[in-house]
């Protein structure tokens, strides 16, 4: 049994479920949509102020849109573990669990990357267009890096969530674990001065450094992305360990 047929099977599993496609579309629509909406309403009014920074502000919608990436990663994996235990049939067809898991993660990542990149460039270009004379081009300092970085951030967040779902083996459980971290713990802890430097090492905080031309805090653009990649590797590895050890 080789990788290619298993990849095709896993790809069909994503294509054939509407909630997964909706979550994937939601990443782009929510992130770019909210960014464009906010820039259309308040964009120029705040432009030119002392704290104005056109590049990082382009990704405002990510605060909401990245939850769709979490959902996509969770649903893609935990769908195997609903009451129906579809994973049993999956493992009957592909009993080499490493092959099954690798194919699933590759396909989930490969689906998230183009959507993430489209989201990154969509956000940036949309926001700059609405900023008019205050807008900058992709040639500006850190601009191209931020758009590509947004795509990498969303891809890693998806895979991180997929790995967590493989450990928890439940949609509800994985979402209950991830949503507060991404929506509450990280923003709240990140705004408290005393622990801000610790929060900077959380996966989403670390990965978002790349959105800014001049990141502040203990992590830089690429070192932050590397920290997030490490979190992702740990989550995916823990998911593999769980699948490998436990009865299906």
């Amino acid at each position: 049994m080789t990788l290619l047929p298993v990849l095709r099977s896993e790809w069909l599993k994503i294509r054939s479920l509407r909630p997964l496609l909706a979550a994937l579309a939601g990443v782009f629509v929510a992130t770019a949509g909210i960014t464009v909406l906010v820039h259309a309403m308040v964009g120029k009014a705040e432009a030119g102020g002392p704290d104005f920074e056109p590049v990082g502000g382009s990704y405002y919608g990510l605060n909401f849109g990245h939850l769709a990436a979490v959902c996509f990663g969770v649903l893609a994996v935990a769908g195997e573990y609903t009451d129906n235990k579809a994973v049993r049939l999956s493992l009957m067809a592909v009993p080499r669990r490493g092959l099954f898991y690798a194919a699933k993660m590759l396909v989930v990542g490969a689906a998230a990357l183009p959507v993430g990149l489209a989201t990154g460039f969509g956000c940036f270009l949309g926001a700059q267009a609405l900023l008019g004379e205050y807008g900058v081009g992709l040639g500006a300092d850190g601009a191209l890096r931020s758009a590509v970085g947004c795509g990498l951030y969303l891809t890693l967040l998806t895979l991180f969530s997929a790995g967590v779902a493989a450990v928890v083996r439940s949609q509800v459980g994985a979402l209950c674990l991830l949503t507060p971290v991404v929506f509450l713990v990280s923003p709240v802890v990140g705004s408290i001065g005393a622990v801000r430097d610790v929060a900077a090492w959380l996966p989403d905080r670390a990965g978002q450094q790349i959105l800014h031309p001049h990141p502040d805090g203990p992590l830089g653009a690429w070192s932050g992305m590397a920290v997030m990649a490490l979190w992702t590797v740990l989550a995916v590895a823990a998911g593999w360990w769980t699948l490998h050890r436990r009865d299906a």
């Binding site: 049994m1 047929p5 298993v6 095709r8 099977s9 896993e10 069909l12 599993k13 054939s16 479920l17 509407r18 909630p19 769908g79 195997e80 609903t82 009451d83 129906n84 235990k85 579809a86 049993r88 049939l89 999956s90 009957m92 067809a93 592909v94």
Partner: peptide
């Protein structure tokens, strides 16, 4: 080996044909 272990071992939101195709593609 072909096995019928649990009649509902299919994702509820997938069509019957797609369900079988995901298995068929692996082989």
């Amino acid at each position: 080996v072909g096995a019928l272990l649990d009649a509902s071992a299919a994702h509820p939101a997938r069509t019957a044909r797609d369900h079988l195709l995901t298995l068929a593609l692996t082989h």
